[in-house]
Every structure is written in C-alpha cells, then in structure tokens.
Design a protein around this nucleic acid. Structure first.
Lengths: 136, 136
DNA sequence: ACCTGTTGTAACTAGTATAGTTACAGGTTT
DNA sequence: AAACCTGTAACTATACTAGTTACAACAGGT
C-alpha cells in the first residue's frame, strides 16, 4: 500500500479551504485535526507550496490557497506530492538468456501502464471541490 | 510503490506455462530467470499453490498449472497473492471534533474505492494468456 | 527591546516491510 | 548411499514511513 501522504495532503487542503479565520490555521492546529505532528504538516505544506498550490509566510500564522478547489483535480495533487508513477514494482534484471526473462519487463510495463491509466482517469475526474462537497 | 511480488508471480506462471520440459522447472531454474533466490520462488509458489493455481510435489522437480492461462485473469492472480486491497493509506484517527477530521476518512474511502474499482476492471480485462501472447 | 508564537528545515529514531539468505527436515531417484 | 529436489523457519540488510527533537529566522504585541 502506498503511504498516507496523499490522504494527509487532501486533509490539509480541505482544512485550508474551509477555514475562514486564517489566523487559526497554524501547523499545530492542522496537526491536531489530522492527528499527526506539526512538523509532518509543515513538511507536506512545503511540498504543496513548491507545487504552487498555496502560500504562507515565515512567522505568520495562516495559509492561503492559490487555486480554486474546483480547478484542482486529485490527479494534479497526486503529481504535486510526487507520488509514485509506477504502482507495481518490476523485479530487476530478469535473465536475458530466457525467452520469458527477455521480454517480461516490457510486457509488465504495458500491463501496469494500462492499469495506471485507468487510475489516472478516476483521479482526473475528481476535484478538491468534490471532496469538500462530500465533507459537508 | 507496491512490492514486486505481483510481477514475480506473473513471471513464474509464464515460465511454467511456456516450459514443456517439466523436469527443467526447478525453483533454481525459475530463480535464474527471475533473477532472485530459489527460496523466494518457492515461497511465492507456495502462495500460488494455496490459491489452487498450480501443483508440485516435494522432492520432484516440476510444476504444473491447474488453470488455463486464458481463464486466469490478472485480477484473480492479484487476489491470489493477497496484494493490498487498498491502494492509498488513510491516516489514523483524525480529530472527530473537527468538521473535516470527522468525515475525511469516509470521504477518502469513497475516492479511493472509485480509483481501485477502475484498476480492478483493467486487471479483470487481462489474462495470463494475454501476457503469454505479448512474450512471444 | 523583549517575549511569545510562528514557519521552515535538518537530523535523528522507532517501527515496519521487502527481499535476500542460510539452514534444514523430508521426499525422490538412481 | 548420494545427489537432487521441495517446503519452511529463521535471520539479515536495506529502505521507507512517520514521528520527534532541535533550532534558525521572522512577526507582532507589550
């Protein structure tokens, strides 16, 4: 199973999108909602900042979204947090002297690409706004 | 990224399906093609045996498929090797006193379920025979 | 000026998963 | 008996995740 960073990122962005009192939005407050450590939150927010999804200023409480929730697809978010592009690992260096070993990697890549593509379509079809709607 | 066991399982089954000389099919031989340790192969084969996909006998070289490659979908194989049902981890115990924290888990489950379902469809659409065809 | 509270990072740690390895009991064949 | 095999338990190296401590730098109030 893939790590929980994608889940945490969605949680953080949801909180920022729905909290009107920005001064309340400290990494400590967010960590209290996510149930993790403030540093974990700040670390993830650093990634989201680099991706241009939000802003913040050192020393000042509060984060601000730079994108409209309806314009942020979960696929874009997935790419922003640099989740794995490959879902399934392929074993290294199968034996090239073997009929199967010689072509298995390319074959598996094809299989996994089709699977990954189907996943991408689902992530593309859902936005942060859809998540917010379901949180009401 | 998910582990490489699914890839190794497909590799093993492909070898068994395409090797006519069964006495050649030792865990050592298979490990040489996959490029891993014979024990890793026997371990995986133990799982596939329990799932009823193949047979073998202690002391005797050779494995035999119990299913027709065209009847074995990659989804069935995936379930057989007990890969993770959930793709993305959801963080534990978000704060129930928070509007977002209270509903985030259920919401994320919905999102991930739709993604997982798309994946299942792709895996269901491909069989071991399809893999064998691509290996030629 | 100082104190408190904040962000942003680096560095370390505990826990866990993966895959490789060693070892060995027990079956089979010659 | 010897050589080979399967099946399994147990240990190890490596890597990743998430939690944690620590601290530099910044902001705002008193």
């Amino acid at each position: 199973m893939v790590n929980s960073r994608f889940s945490v990122a969605i949680h953080i962005l949801s909180l920022i999108a729905t909290t009107s009192d920005k001064s309340q939005l400290t990494s400590d407050f967010i960590a209290g909602s996510v149930n993790t450590n403030p540093v974990v939150v700040r670390r993830m927010i650093g990634v989201l900042k680099k991706a241009g999804l939000l802003t913040s200023q050192p020393g000042i409480a509060g984060y601000e979204l730079l994108v409209e929730p309806k314009d942020l697809t979960l696929l874009a978010l997935y790419h922003a947090i640099d989740g794995p592009e490959q879902l399934f690992a392929i074993h290294d260096e199968p034996n090239p002297d073997c009929t199967v070993g010689r072509k298995i990697q390319r074959t598996l890549e094809g299989v996994y690409t089709s699977v990954w593509h189907a996943m991408e379509e689902q992530l593309q079809a859902q936005t942060l706004q859809d998540v917010l709607d379901q949180l009401r």
